[in-house]
Simulated scan of single mutants.
Amino acid sequence: MDNQDIKLLLIKKLKLQKAYVTGDSNHIKILVIGDIFKGISQVKRQQIVYTPLINMITQKHIHSVSIMSYTIEEWKIKNKNMDHSEYA
């Protein structure tokens, strides 16, 4: 599964507004944006994102994952101050 497939999987399963996935099978960086994260702690957000990826992780298709998650409103605020070019 490549980064585009992972991106589409996350968007579909979690009903996200946006997802950015970079890296290789050794280390994947994920930035996700959606209102699914409203009122949810960072730990729970990571658990939500891990869920659709768990088979790839346990089967060692993905070694490690870094996750940044935002609600749509949080992203509007963060986006003004954040260099997210690595996720483009």
Rank of each mutant, 00 (worst) to 15 (best):
1 M>K: 07
3 N>P: 04
4 Q>T: 06
5 D>Q: 11
5 D>N: 09
6 I>H: 05
6 I>F: 12
7 K>F: 13
7 K>Q: 09
7 K>D: 02
9 L>F: 02
9 L>H: 01
9 L>T: 05
10 L>H: 05
10 L>Q: 02
11 I>L: 13
11 I>C: 06
11 I>K: 14
11 I>E: 08
12 K>V: 02
12 K>W: 02
12 K>Y: 05
13 K>Y: 00
14 L>R: 10
15 K>H: 14
15 K>P: 03
15 K>G: 05
16 L>R: 06
17 Q>I: 00
18 K>R: 13
18 K>T: 03
19 A>M: 11
20 Y>P: 01
20 Y>N: 03
21 V>T: 07
21 V>R: 04
22 T>F: 11
22 T>L: 08
23 G>A: 13
23 G>I: 13
23 G>C: 11
23 G>M: 10
23 G>P: 06
24 D>M: 09
25 S>T: 09
26 N>Q: 14
26 N>H: 12
27 H>P: 00
27 H>A: 03
28 I>F: 15
28 I>V: 15
29 K>Q: 11
29 K>F: 15
30 I>K: 00
31 L>A: 06
32 V>P: 02
33 I>Y: 05
33 I>K: 05
33 I>V: 12
33 I>Q: 07
33 I>F: 05
35 D>N: 15
35 D>F: 13
35 D>R: 12
36 I>T: 07
37 F>T: 01
37 F>E: 01
38 K>I: 13
38 K>E: 10
38 K>A: 12
39 G>E: 06
42 Q>K: 14
42 Q>S: 15
42 Q>D: 12
43 V>C: 00
43 V>H: 10
44 K>W: 06
45 R>T: 12
45 R>I: 09
45 R>L: 07
45 R>C: 14
45 R>V: 07
45 R>A: 14
46 Q>D: 11
46 Q>P: 03
47 Q>C: 03
48 I>D: 01
48 I>P: 00
49 V>N: 01
50 Y>T: 01
50 Y>V: 07
50 Y>N: 04
51 T>E: 15
51 T>L: 12
51 T>R: 08
53 L>E: 00
53 L>V: 02
53 L>M: 04
53 L>W: 02
54 I>D: 08
54 I>F: 03
54 I>E: 08
55 N>D: 14
55 N>W: 00
55 N>H: 04
57 I>H: 05
58 T>S: 14
58 T>P: 01
59 Q>E: 13
59 Q>G: 06
60 K>N: 11
60 K>H: 01
60 K>T: 12
61 H>D: 15
63 H>A: 05
63 H>L: 09
63 H>N: 08
63 H>Q: 10
65 V>Y: 11
65 V>I: 15
67 I>W: 11
67 I>T: 11
68 M>S: 13
69 S>A: 15
69 S>C: 10
71 T>R: 10
72 I>M: 09
73 E>W: 03
74 E>C: 10
74 E>Q: 15
75 W>H: 04
76 K>M: 06
78 K>Y: 02
78 K>R: 09
79 N>Y: 10
80 K>F: 14
80 K>A: 12
81 N>C: 02
81 N>G: 01
81 N>D: 09
82 M>D: 08
82 M>R: 03
82 M>F: 08
83 D>T: 02
84 H>P: 00
85 S>I: 05
88 A>L: 15
88 A>S: 12
